[in-house]
């Protein structure tokens, strides 16, 4: 669904070119849920912006849902099949009323008028914003705005949805709802890419990409990557709590029967140790 071959990118700044992506190569299958982890400034959002042509391609080849992202004639179509929920939802609001905000995408893509009402209602329901139809987006709290932004993307039911830290401002319950929703969308056949700083969220992904300094450092199943202390250290990240406990005990000469990824697995491992 997403194929990147030696993708490179440099921003133009006053002090000249700043290279931020180096030969990024990866392949994401249709229907997968991928997590991207990495330090601030390592290039996650830059890669995401290339995927739906918010930034122009410079180097290498990137195809998303069959569209070549460097083909400028197809940009409009590409953005429909590859939706994005940004780090900061305020940046993507264009309307002064919630329901118009959600209707904006479908209208833009000339979805028949009579269908739009139902689409908007369903999208708002999916993010638990029923009853907010007539509110102004700016009056919503941070978390509510994030959910509205997600509804706006869902209204186009894109094949690929990239969540760029879309859960960063949500309370734990809303966060779980959104994550469950990502899972549900995945089950419906959408391909999900989530960029996050919450390693506990990455546990839910099928595969995890670790980025560092504009390169892909490792790409593998959540277990392969998140329980690998060496790799996580190299990317300057922290393992999930459960795995950290395993290594902290190991350092004291206590060896649990397995390296757990989740809290449930940690409980099980401790149980089996006893």
């Amino acid at each position: 669904m997403i194929q990147a071959q030696n993708v490179g990118f440099a921003y133009e700044t006053d002090e000249g070119l700043r290279r931020v992506l180096h030969e990024v190569t990866l392949s994401i299958q249709s229907g997968e849920m991928i997590a991207v982890l990495g330090q601030n400034g390592c290039g996650k959002s830059t890669f995401a912006r290339l995927c739906n042509a918010l930034l122009p391609m410079q180097e290498g080849k990137l195809t998303v849902a069959g569209f070549d992202t460097s083909d400028k004639k197809m940009t409009f179509e590409l953005r429909r099949v590859c939706g994005m929920v940004f780090q900061n939802p305020d940046n993507q609001f264009v309307s002064s009323v919630v329901q118009e905000e959600v209707a904006f995408g479908p209208e833009n893509y000339e979805v028949p008028r009579q269908d739009i009402g139902a689409i908007v209602k369903a999208a708002l329901h999916q993010v638990a914003l029923d009853g907010f139809e007539h509110r102004a987006p700016y009056t919503l709290s941070g978390g509510q705005k994030q959910r509205l932004a997600i509804a706006g993307v869902l209204a186009l039911s894109p094949k690929v949805i990239i969540f760029d830290e879309a859960t960063a401002m949500l309370d734990p319950m809303c966060r779980r709802e959104v994550l469950a929703m990502m899972k549900k969308l995945q089950a419906q056949g959408h391909t999900i890419v989530m960029i996050t700083h919450y390693v506990e969220e990455a546990v839910l992904a099928d595969r995890v990409a670790l980025m560092q300094d504009g390169k892909i450092l490792a790409f593998g199943t959540a277990r392969e990557i998140l329980c690998d202390k060496e790799k996580m250290d190299a990317a300057k990240l922290l393992m999930p709590h459960a795995a950290r406990v395993y290594y902290d005990l190991l350092a004291e000469g206590i060896t649990l029967p397995m390296c757990p990824l989740t809290e449930e697995e940690l409980l099980e491992a401790i149980c089996r140790f006893n």
């Binding site: 601030n40 830290e165 401002m169």
Partner: peptide, 11 residues
């Protein structure tokens, strides 16, 4: 909410 968006090391 100052730490939302900070990577683990920065946090």
């Amino acid at each position: 909410e100052p730490i939302a968006g900070l990577d683990p090391q920065a946090r």
